[in-house]
Design a protein around this nucleic acid. Structure first.
Lengths: 130, 130
DNA sequence: TATAAAAATGATAATCATTTCTATTATTTC
DNA sequence: GAAATAATAGAAATGATTATCATTTTTATA
């Protein structure tokens, strides 16, 4: 199944590349629809999955039951606000090697881990204090 | 809404308390159904949610899109096998304080984190090598 | 440039975990 | 034991995601 160009996929990628708020498939759909009013939600899902499989974007899980997408595929950590639901990058210098810690006393193979943080974001924190 | 006793809830709790394989709501349903053939899946969900809210069991997310339930509510980490889907506890001596690491350079409040590990379990590893 | 093969699309149906309804049943209180 | 109210069973609803399929685009080639 050789890849073929598609304007829709290009628009999805283009939109995502300029985002740092980790939009969901539906958010991408809402936005790309402005340029392609007939685009189908299925096409958005299909292309996001394709891009994720190609390693061009990352699928991010922050425990809210909805997949988010991130143009930054480098290893980094996410925070999600329980108040407003926003997703942000966290600037953690160098996460310890928890995979090795987990490997001790374990007879299987640790392939990796998923870690995300939650709490209240700066904006919501300030709002609650006023 | 004062809590009232229910035999179904008791059976669900009883079943879960003796498990260390982190069953899903459906797995609980399948089992409790042997004692209560008419129990509804909705009742299982309702009670698992209630027990989780009461802090009597823990809801565990291992990224497979299904909630698992754990009678052990103490802080500990989980591993899930990408081969067979099993969920196991990990014996990590002393987990680092990643919440504090995440709090640096962050203007919100870190409330906690979700961390789970994935890979191939001992049983599947051995099976693949034979 | 026309054409034909293959991939991508839009529309919609299907799936799957979970939640929500509602009439009925069980538990508790008096 | 009867009234009040929480819990249930069963079924429908929901929300995110995937699958299906006839039609349209893309692209390699004659």
């Amino acid at each position: 199944m050789a890849l073929k160009y598609s304007r829709q996929r290009e628009a999805i990628k283009e939109f995502l590349m300029n985002r740092k708020d980790h939009p969901t498939a539906d958010a991408v759909y809402m936005e790309v629809r402005k340029e392609f009013p007939n685009i189908s939600l299925g096409t958005v899902y299909r292309n996001l999955t394709l891009l994720a499989d190609l390693g061009e974007v990352a699928r991010v899980n922050v425990g809210d039951g909805v997949d988010h997408f991130d143009p930054n595929t480098a290893l980094h950590y996410h925070f999600t606000c329980r108040e407003c639901g926003c997703v942000q990058d966290l600037d953690i210098d160098n996460i310890v090697n928890i995979n090795e810690m987990a490997s001790a006393n374990f007879d299987g193979e640790i392939g990796g881990n998923v870690t995300y943080f939650y709490g209240i974001c700066g904006k919501c924190k300030r709002k609650l204090l006023s």
